[in-house]
Design a protein around this nucleic acid. Structure first.
Lengths: 220, 220
DNA sequence: TTTTGGATAATTGTATACAATAATGCAAGT
DNA sequence: ACTTGCATTATTGTATACAATTATCCAAAA
């Protein structure tokens, strides 16, 4: 499912996922097909399809003949995801160093410039979007369909976490500085350095969360 | 979707995935809902659900109003997957070193013993099943829902590759020896050594494929 | 021969009907 | 008051109907 898929069933899928990640449904809350369908003005069919896709993403558990319920995401789960991403973003940067094009480097540099611009204005919605874009350029640059697929999924999964971290004191500036160092390494095609920096970039996000608190994110 | 989910829609999902991975459908071949449904003796509904799940797994592409087609897996894709797995299996072994229970270690040791037994008899079906089991015990032992989820998905994805590598000359024996070393490290709770060994275990699989040829696996 | 238009068929998208299963509530018995 | 059993309701599972979209084919024109 590409992100710019605006079919009805695609919209339902994204909407329910968004609602889950936004905390609209509590952990273990059952998701009734008819209820959600009525809410979104569609029949059960697209809702069912969406719920089954969400199960595959791990956001929902389905027990046959009983229905779907929301899988909770704990603080430990998020830490684990960032540890996983640390390794995979590292791999991505390593491969990107060998495959990145001049155009992509230009895009990354423009991205860094724009983040500076919007961070100053505390326009965090824009910053989040640019952060998305930065990483997606890298996912493309690594030249691996499989790695891109995995990282994109994770990236989406933790969007809510990223929204919060990026609004924490100084984090946008630090993050953008880390981005700049990664791009410098990529320009020099220094694969190992790029990998090291990208890995740190992820681990720093967790350090930042540890420092400034998880309180506004989770109940558990 | 747990593996022991025997609901009809679950069965359809697993069946289509199996057929794709077994090469029943060629790359870019379109998968028609009605055709598959008739073949499996079900209506389009469960087939549609399955196809949408398979899209999320990356095995299928769906273009709205046009339908689903099989995504090809190239040699490079497989190499990439093993590079990704190398890092994640390494992480898994690292975490397992701290969390593994005595029972799990016993299970792993029994597994190694049984692989020796069945390898001698060239009973490769059994060996593949035991290899599945070995890794799944580790996925459980690492104590991370997220990592387990990811690794299980990949593991399934390359089942066909593993089936082939395990039937190559001496590979079962070498693989089992690598398993033994990993378990030894886990028994000593030596996280770094376990990580190093698990990573190598994956990379060795690729070396093995490079040495003995990809010819009987792929067309591209 | 090649191309184009449009009718026809095939296929997907969604809603709904019905069947199977699970949850709920309530009355009867202890 | 507290179970237990059964009828009722709610919910999911699957099939089917119909609408919307796309693919195919063939005749007519260039």
């Amino acid at each position: 499912m590409s992100e710019d898929n605006y079919s009805l069933s695609g919209r339902v899928f994204h909407k329910i996922r968004e609602d889950i990640l936004a905390g609209k449904y509590k952990t273990d809350e059952t998701l009734k097909e008819k209820t959600i369908g009525d809410e979104l003005g569609v029949s059960r069919t697209p809702v069912r399809e969406a719920l089954r896709q969400l199960e595959l993403e791990g956001l929902v558990t389905i027990i046959p003949n009983k229905g779907a319920s929301v899988v909770g995401i704990s603080k430990q789960d998020i830490k684990d995801i960032y540890e996983i991403r640390a390794r995979l973003e590292g791999l991505c940067a390593k491969w990107s160093a060998d495959h990145i094009t001049a155009e992509q480097i230009t895009e990354l540099e423009e991205n860094i410039f724009l983040v500076d611009f919007h961070a100053e204005k505390k326009n965090y919605t824009q910053v989040l979007e640019l952060d998305n874009k930065f990483h997606e350029i890298l996912y493309e640059a690594c030249n691996s369909k499989m790695l891109k697929h995995e990282l994109s999924a994770f990236h989406h999964y933790v969007e809510r976490v990223r929204k919060i971290t990026l609004s924490m004191p100084d984090r946008v500036e630090k993050s953008n500085e880390e981005h700049r160092l990664i791009v410098d390494a990529l320009k020099k095609h220094d694969a190992l350095e790029a990998e090291r920096l990208a890995t740190s970039h992820m681990l720093n996000t967790i350090s930042n969360m540890d420092k400034f608190g998880w309180d506004n994110l989770l109940e558990n």
